[in-house]
Amino acid sequence: MIHTHENGITCQDLLLNLSSYIDGDLEESMCEELKRHMEGCQNCRVVFDTTTRTIYLYQSRIERDEIPPEVRERLYSKLNLDDFLKTKA
């Protein structure tokens, strides 16, 4: 195996790669390095867990946003598409 424990990554490395790691954009070997770092580093594990949770919470929160019916009506009217308003509730 290429990686050695002595050359482990730092907290700063983890931070800089955090987003790409969350997005699954990193090479397998780098993911392994990050995972191993987090096993031994409580702070980085918390940062990782709370960051993924933050993203998830915003997704759940905003996903529930709906377009108010009167806003939708005014949009269709502005676009001269009033006659299509009833096609979908």
Partner: peptide, 12 residues
Amino acid sequence: GTYQPKEMADWS
């Protein structure tokens, strides 16, 4: 200005 996390509580 590399970012340093300050809040370290685990609420996840």
